[in-house]
Design a protein around this nucleic acid. Structure first.
Length: 571
RNA sequence: CGGUGAUUAGCGCAGCUUGGUAGCGCACUUGGUUUGGGUCCAAGGGGUCGCAAGUUCGAAUCUUGCAUCACCGACCA
């Protein structure tokens, strides 16, 4: 490709509305352009990268035994009514009508379509197992699109769905997909981790997310510092502190704490550590038979954070988790937030394991402007349940039993889970078994955010000059950068000849034939992140050499012109 | 959806307080100059000032409403 016949579209200045580095660089390097909130045009350079990611994903899926199909973006609403998700999915599902006012959706995912397809096409156990994938545009009407293509509304996803007679078979395919995902991210050249994930509302037994580690990630991942354990913080278990709880040594004492509300204020006012306090959060219970929701108290150590995912899984707590309003709290206990505590609290009380391990702690006195010191479980506060309801923090013992927790940020680029029979049940997807009985299938599903990977790769691989692509997904393998080609016939001839040679060898090379100064060319190619710059100048032509600059290492070396192809041979 | 901020040329911004019909840098075009790290000089082209209504002789500027975009919080690949 010649730059003169190409759309380079690089930008010198950073557009103001791009916050994260990958978004800035994708705009500056001419990979994408914004059309509307969460909607992006992929420019030629960006598309090259996207296609390379897609190709690796496709190859590994096929190698793992999945077969490719392509399903429509626009899907009839009745499919979604059949699965129950027309009502469940919420406003993220974009609903549209056709000219006959028939309702459709833009597919945010394809479980319905694939399940329908399989239920129509598959009727015998002999046709199983089956694992079908596609690479298709998805649309999710995100509340807040952000970070460029990282969280766009329209995005490219590889989604695969497997169908099985038995759980055991599902587990085998799940493991194959797990392994395939590892190979994919290895080949992409990314620093990634599979992590134990929450299965969310879908349920099921097993789920893993694949995260690319990056500071700008939106998820917290808990790792063990001495084993392979890694889990999304939503899912990481916070163990009970070791050893028995300390004995009560203090008397329960009510102290006036006027205007002191937050844990920081309480700890400072009473001159104690936040770890010696508890905080009490008020949330709603599930509706009773009269449609009423009681208030439930969640008690955590002062320095800990509530894990809402864990909390809303408790049967005593409404899902989704809802904090009680000021009015509801007043009605329940006649006290405002800031002075609530578990002592003599006439409510269901759920205590985190760590909070339950405290003795002689500080808590609200359930009377505005007062706290207790020297509070102790069982003696002062009775009738409580102990559960794991907090986020793990760095230094906690790892739930795997080895080492301590460290926390890093990750970008979720893949998610696999065992779906079970939810969709197969709803859409009557089954086969006849060997014994002639009808049996509902069990399913797995496996997603990879293809467009998100492009952004994640940049988050992980860049410097102040621009993108440093992993070789496998660089838009070009090399760029030919001639110095002052307009003045030097020798440079021009050499560059043209090299371009022809590389093209014929099947190398993806960008020939910068613009009439630009060297600085401009260098800046552009470094921004775009081409791994190898082949610099041709009068300076080295007397020796029949060119200069090779490695974008990743920054190394420059001289190479005989007739040996340039050797740069690419090892592949 | 809540909170914050923005909207003036392709991009980045000034002008608005104090109303008089729009300007700077980059990019673009032309000519010259320069040529191994974003040259320099000159001349140009390009704007319904987000939309609508109002106030006024006159609105980018004041008022009201709306829209769009971004950032911070709950969902997800």
């Amino acid at each position: 490709m010649r730059t003169s016949q190409y759309l380079l579209a690089t930008l010198k200045e950073t557009p103001a509305n791009a916050e994260v580095i990958s978004h800035q660089l994708m705009l500056r390097a001419g990979l994408v352009r914004n059309l509307a909130s969460g909607l992006y045009t992929w420019l030629p350079t960006g598309l090259k990268v996207l296609r390379k990611v897609e190709k690796i994903v496709r190859e590994e899926m096929e190698r793992a035994g999945a077969i490719e199909a392509l399903m429509p973006v626009v899907q009839p609403a009745d499919l979604w009514e059949e699965s129950g998700r027309w009502d469940e999915y919420g406003p993220e599902l974009l609903r549209i009508n056709d000219r006959h006012q028939r309702p459709f959706v833009l597919g945010p995912t394809h479980e319905e379509v694939i399940t329908k397809l399989v239920s129509n096409e598959i009727s015998s156990y002999k046709q199983l197992p089956l694992n079908i994938f596609q690479v298709q545009t998805k649309f999710r009407d995100e509340i807040r699109p952000r970070f460029g293509v990282m969280r766009g509304r329209e995005f490219l996803m590889k989604d695969a769905y497997s169908f099985h007679l038995e759980q055991e078979c599902l587990e085998q395919t799940y493991q194959k997909m797990f392994d395939a995902y590892c190979r994919i991210f290895e080949r992409l050249g990314l620093d990634y981790r599979p992590v134990i994930a929450d299965t969310g509302s879908i349920g099921g037994d097993a789920s893993h997310e694949f995260h690319v580690l990056a500071e700008s990630g939106e998820d917290d991942i808990a790792f063990s510092d001495s084993s392979d354990f890694a889990a999304n913080i939503e899912k990481a278990e916070a163990l009970a502190p070791a050893g028995p709880r300390g004995e009560a040594t203090q008397d329960l004492t009510k102290v006036a704490t006027p205007g002191v509300k937050s844990i920081e204020e309480v700890a400072a006012f009473l001159k104690v550590d936040a770890q010696a306090t508890v905080k009490t959060l008020m949330v709603l219970a599930p509706e009773d038979e009269n449609g009423q929701q009681a208030v439930v108290a969640l008690v955590l150590r002062g320095d800990h954070q509530l894990n809402e995912i864990k909390a809303e899984k408790l049967e005593q707590v409404a899902a989704p988790l809802t904090f009680a309003s000021e009015e509801q709290i007043q009605a329940a206990i006649n006290c405002a937030t800031g002075s609530i505590g578990p002592v003599n609290l006439p409510l269901q009380v759920i205590v985190d394991r760590s909070a339950a391990h405290l003795s002689d702690f500080v808590c609200g006195a359930n009377e505005d402007g007062y706290h207790f010191t020297g509070a102790n479980w069982d003696r002062d506060a009775k009738d409580y349940r102990v559960e794991d309801i907090r986020n793990v923090v760095e230094g906690d013992p790892s739930p795997c039993g080895q080492g301590n927790i460290i926390i890093k940020r990750g970008i979720e680029v893949g998610h696999i889970f065992q779906l079970g029979k939810k969709y197969a049940d709803a859409m009557n997807c089954g086969v006849l078994t060997e014994s002639g009985k009808h049996q509902t299938l069990t399913m797995g599903c496996y997603g990879i955010g293809v467009s998100r990977i492009v952004a994640a790769a940049i988050e992980q691989n860049h410097d102040k000059y621009g993108i440093k692509w992993p070789a496998a997904i660089a838009p070009f393998q090399a760029a030919i950068v001639p110095m002052n080609m307009a003045k030097s016939a020798r440079v021009k001839e050499t560059a043209e000849a090299l371009y022809q040679e590389l093209q014929q060898a099947g190398i993806e090379v960008l020939f910068d034939d613009r009439k630009e100064r060297p600085g401009v060319m260098f800046a552009d190619h470094e921004l775009i992140g081409t791994p190898l710059l082949l610099v041709i100048g009068e300076r080295n032509l007397d020796n029949q050499q060119i200069e090779v600059k490695n974008r990743i290492t920054g190394e420059k070396s001289l190479l005989a012109i007739n040996e340039v192809l050797s740069l690419f041979n090892p592949q």
